[in-house]
Amino acid sequence: MKLYNIAHSRAGDKGNTLTLSLIPYKESDYAWLCEKVTAEKVKAHLQEIVKGKVVRYELPNIASLLFVCQQALSTGVTTSWVMDAHGKTLSYALLEMEI
């Protein structure tokens, strides 16, 4: 099953850092997501895109995860030469992950 089926995500940019939230549709899936979607797994999944490290934050209050991915935006939005300089489409790359 793809993450897409059980969770949603929003991408944000800060310089060359990409932020990806991961929010289960059902809050009861949160613990399971915490177990399955580790920072290492996200780093491996996005290895073609994220060149730096991935840090995961847990937010049990809102049953959500946040992945902060360094060196992910080809130097950052202002000087990037890629199509999607902000990385706005990358939330859907995360949701392609098979779990």
Binding site: H8, S9, R10, G12, D13, K14, T17, T19, S21, I23, Y25, Y57, L59, I62, S64, L66, V68
Partner: peptide
């Protein structure tokens, strides 16, 4: 709804603490 608000709360946040 809770989902739109959660997405925006974490948008562009590099350290939620």
């Amino acid at each position: 709804n809770l989902d739109t608000v959660k997405e925006q709360l974490l948008y562009e946040v590099v350290n939620p603490h």
